[in-house]
């Protein structure tokens, strides 16, 4: 199957530079400090944040006077794929994603403001359809904002790949991932245009790295605007009873 048809459309009818529909919601749980739900196409992710709180039991050793300890946990629900699979917490893919998530979030959380404390970020992928990690980063950002954790700025992730005729494509679906070549995931800090993480599923030829990376970053910019709007409307909603933001 070709990723792009001669009319320039992808298998699901998108143009190469179009993202899937993004839906998001903050504060979906009340008993947690922060939570968010992000839907990018058929990929659905929940993020939950606890903290900052005192460093607890097993992590006691990681207590630091320099800043907060960020504890990440990425997992996929057993029902997230079309074939139901029992997934162990510690499988290789999830462990890798956990490490990447930690690296990405560490770039924006102002841990130095919260010494000797711990922040927990839990991610659960409810439905998997490509770009799981990117959606997880976006959900984590929203949940951290919901929890009121001090951040330098948003961190937003997006994927990109190469279509037929070496045309860069953004926001890769599961079908495209399984048909196409390498997928690149990038996490950026959109205001300062810094890159927090770049990850590739396979090797890219150097010639294509730049256009694909650019395409992914453009996707991040767009995602950022959508998320920012969601945050704004959420804040104005929960702030209304206290007349926040009113002159």
């Amino acid at each position: 199957m070709e990723l792009l048809n001669d009319q320039g459309l992808r298998l699901d009818g998108r143009k190469p530079d179009e993202l899937r529909l993004i839906k998001c919601k903050l504060g979906i749980f009340t008993h947690t400090d922060g939570s968010a739900f992000v839907e990018q196409g058929n990929t659905k992710v929940i993020a939950v944040v606890y903290g900052p709180h005192e460093v607890r039991n097993v992590h006691r050793a990681k207590t630091s006077a320099d800043g907060a300890f960020v504890n990440c946990q990425y997992s996929m629900a057993a029902f997230s794929m079309s074939e139901r699979k029992k997934r162990n917490r510690g499988d290789r893919k999830s462990t890798e994603a956990t490490i990447h998530l930690h690296q990405t979030l560490a770039a924006v959380i102002r841990t130095e403001l919260m010494p000797k404390s711990q922040i927990d970020v839990f991610i659960e992928v409810l439905q998997s359809d490509g770009g799981n990690f990117a959606a997880s980063v976006n959900a984590a950002t929203l949940a951290l904002i919901d929890a009121g954790i001090p951040l330098r700025e948003y961190v937003i992730a997006c994927t990109a790949s190469l279509g037929t005729g070496n045309v860069p494509m953004v926001d890769i679906s599961n079908l495209e991932e399984s048909l196409g070549g390498p997928t690149l995931t990038v996490a950026v800090l959109p205001r300062s245009s810094q890159i927090a993480l770049v990850e590739m599923s396979q090797r890219f030829h150097l010639d294509f790295l730049e256009p694909v990376l650019k395409m992914a970053m453009k996707g991040c910019d767009y995602t950022f605007k959508v998320l920012d709007m969601a945050v704004e409307s959420y804040l104005s909603e929960i702030g209304k009873p206290n007349n926040w933001g009113q002159a």
Partner: peptide, 13 residues
């Protein structure tokens, strides 16, 4: 041999 349910998005323009 297991039956899978596949859901794919289909965008209309």
């Amino acid at each position: 041999g297991t039956i899978l349910k596949i859901v794919r998005e289909h965008y209309l323009r």
